[in-house]
């Protein structure tokens, strides 16, 4: 066989449109399904909901354009301000979630026999349904047959009407909400602690750091990503609080424990005021947006660093 029969292999590919453009077409194609679904189920409904907030509509009669009157009514509605204030209480109280979560995580982050069982028990409240949490707390605090007053009565204390009181009801609901929230934050911190670099702590100890100093200057800075996520989920959890309110108090007594999300549900699906409900939704949407913008800004800034 002569050497001439070995032809050089032709390695050039035909120059097609696809070859020239695949670098930018492929990501677009991959994004397309998600983008379509997101547009249909999120973006379009947002705009529909905002449009609806300018109408008066009960679902049967034709929609009536009312301009901003749903909003003027809303800002004059004392229930709306009650809901906003309650939402702020939720927000503040939920900031305790990361604090208690961190404390629990530090306590549980040790190597003793049976600690895994203890950890899973502390995580338990987050696993059970919010409905169950609401029922358990609602019955516990009920002044007619609740466990709390049953216990107090043995000490001769008059029944406490906490969940029935207009000034206390919302805090009882928040307490119920905080319970699973603490365990959620705890898990976030526990994973953070497990992933922590032991050498840094060792070095700090060699330099004589201990107690609060060690926690504040060495541990916490390393837990910053976990803190960030814990705060974010707590804020979102506080703003969208609905299920516990709906199960424990139905916003009552007389609106004193209502929040924006529950008020929106009530106006839309119990009172059939779709436009008014949409106006509340829009306000809630704007509040969330401000927060998310701040969140994205700080996240991008961090990534740029």
């Amino acid at each position: 066989m002569s050497i001439t029969s070995l032809k050089p292999l032709n390695l050039t590919f035909p120059d097609t449109w696809w070859r020239r453009n695949q670098m930018w077409v492929t990501p677009l194609l991959l994004l397309l399904p998600a983008a379509v679904v997101f547009t249909i189920f999120v973006i379009i409904p947002i705009f529909q909901s905002i449009t609806l907030s300018f109408y008066d509509w009960d679902g049967i009669n034709p929609k009536k354009w009312v301009g901003f009157s749903n909003y003027t009514e809303l800002f004059g509605d004392e229930v709306f301000w009650k809901a906003i204030f309650n939402n702020i209480w939720w927000l503040f109280a939920f900031m305790l979630g990361p604090v208690f979560g961190l404390a629990l995580a530090l306590f549980l982050n040790q190597n003793v026999r049976g600690i895994r069982l203890a950890k899973s028990l502390f995580f338990f409240p987050f696993v059970i349904s919010q409905v169950v949490v609401g029922l358990v707390f609602g019955w516990f605090f009920n002044s007619q047959f609740g466990l709390l007053n049953e216990l107090l009565s043995h000490f001769g204390v008059e029944p406490l009407a906490l969940i029935e009181g207009e000034n206390t009801a919302t805090f009882v609901v928040i307490l119920a909400g905080l319970w699973p929230q603490v365990s959620y934050c705890m898990i976030l911190y526990l994973t953070g602690l497990t992933a922590m670099n032991g050498e840094v702590i060792e070095a700090a100890r060699m330099d004589g750091a201990k107690g609060w100093n060690l926690l504040w200057h060495i541990i916490l800075p390393q837990l910053r990503p976990a803190t960030f996520i814990a705060v974010v989920v707590s804020v979102v959890g506080a703003l969208r609080s609905f299920d516990l309110v709906s199960i424990m108090t139905l916003g009552g007594p007389y609106n004193s424990s209502t929040v924006l999300a529950y008020m929106m549900y009530e106006q839309t699906f119990l009172n059939f005021r779709y436009g008014y409900g949409a106006a509340i939704a829009t306000v809630l949407f704007i509040i969330m947006d401000v927060y998310i913008a701040f969140f994205l800004y700080s996240m991008l800034k961090r990534e740029a660093r």
Binding site: G138, F141, N142, S143, Q144, F145, P159, A161, I163, E164, A169, M248, T249, G252, P253
Partner: peptide, 16 residues
């Protein structure tokens, strides 16, 4: 009326 009825549903109240 009984006191503190605001967080009791009608089903729960009939027990009394």
């Amino acid at each position: 009326f009984v006191k503190n009825h605001a967080s009791t549903s009608w089903q729960e109240s009939q027990a009394s």
